[in-house]
Amino acid sequence: MPQTPLETDVAIIGAGPTALFAAFECSMLHLKTLLIDTLDEVGGQCAALYPEKPIYDIPAHPAITGGALVEALEAQIAPFNVPRLLGHQVTTLSGYRGAFRLGTDKGAQIHAKAIIIAAGAGAFGPNRPPLDALGDFEKSGAVRYYVRRKSDFTDKDIVIAGGGDSALDWVVELSDICRKIHLVHRRDRFRGAPETLARVESCIASGKVEKIVPYQLHALHGEDGTLAEVEVIDLEGKTRRLAATHLLPFYGLSTDLGPILGWNLAVTRNTLPVMPVTMETSQPGIFAIGDVASYPGKLKLILQGFSEGAMAAHAIYPIIYPETALHFEYSTSKGVPQPG
């Protein structure tokens, strides 16, 4: 039997930080909201990829981990009891502004008057290095693409491969607990914030980190999924073997908008172009915020995604209440509902 459709004012596709704050902004405007996400928990990439990694550009927080940020956002929307449909991927979308119909891969049906797509960069997965027997070492946990618990690497010899922000950030974060870190990159130039680069150089100077450049990953050595050495090779074919129990390759994420590509929305470079004043996509009533949204001057920062969520909520209000003027009030004046 078909499931009874879930009725809501706003369906938010995604449940990462930007989506959670958009749910708060919608709820403050008395818009009934539903969160939908393919993951089994809220938090998006923050929860799935780097729950213990500090984020430094959240206003009023000199540093906050991804996990702590998600917990704070959950506490912020707790008074509204926002329902969520987790472990569901939205596969079908039809209808029009004020009357959309969504279907998920688990058979759920949702009726919504407006939609906010806050799906980050879409479905994401790591770019894997082309190494023999890689799968065996992935299964054992010797090769990892995300750090969920820093304590797993206490007193370990590890190799971190990559030259971008993720590789450099984790060099800094793990340098105090690892016995030795080898930082492998194909050239002696890294892409990171000046402060992070300075901290990495400090770690190298202290002897906690050894920079292996210009080298690339070449082979993994060990038995039954237990890693013993990571072999690297330079441009002239010279190889080195680095003792290591873990390899952390940070070569970025491969992303895919998936079913979104079939929803007749304008797409540019795997993003959804929007009107920057309203965050509305090429289809009326469908809005996009966060990394998936693009417009001139866009910055891919969580704090900008928060602002976009507020703008989308205010643009949606007249769709839900077409005959009611929105008299904006500051939260210091109106407050929020209290639990219970």
Rank of each mutant, 00 (worst) to 15 (best):
His182Ile: 06
Val292Phe: 06
Leu257Asp: 01
Pro318Gly: 07
Pro337Lys: 06
Val82Asp: 02
Arg149Val: 08
Glu236Arg: 10
Leu168Pro: 00
Ile158Lys: 04
Leu183Phe: 08
Phe287Ile: 01
Pro62Glu: 11
Leu197Asp: 05
Leu248Tyr: 01
Pro17Trp: 00
Gly285Ser: 08
Thr104Glu: 06
Thr239Gly: 06
His218Arg: 14
Leu49Glu: 07
Lys334Asn: 06
His221Gln: 13
Gly122Cys: 00
Leu174Gly: 00
Leu261Ile: 15
Leu86His: 08
Cys46Ile: 03
Leu20Pro: 01
Ala11Trp: 00
Ala108Arg: 11
Val90Tyr: 01
Glu231Ser: 10
Thr33Ser: 08
Leu272Thr: 03
Asp224Lys: 15
Thr104Ser: 13
Ala112His: 06
Phe24Ser: 00
Ser206His: 06
Leu272Lys: 02
Leu301His: 08
Arg179Gly: 11
Pro276Ser: 15
His218Trp: 14
Ile320Phe: 06
Arg144Thr: 10
Leu39Trp: 11
Ala198Thr: 09
Ala15Val: 04
Cys178Ile: 05
Val171Glu: 03
Ile319Thr: 07
Asp57Phe: 07
Pro273Leu: 06
Gln338Leu: 14
Gly16Ala: 12
Pro83Ala: 13
Ser294Cys: 13
Leu34Pro: 00
Thr92Ile: 11
His218Thr: 11
Leu217Trp: 00
Gly14Lys: 01
Tyr96His: 14
His327Leu: 14
Leu102Ala: 04
Ala228Val: 07
Gln304Met: 12
Ala167Leu: 07
Ser282Gln: 13
Leu174Glu: 03
Ile12Pro: 04
Ala228Phe: 10
Gly43Thr: 03
Pro318Ala: 12
Leu29Ala: 08
Asp176Glu: 15
Phe80Tyr: 09
Ile116Ser: 07
Glu138Asn: 12
Ser140Gly: 08
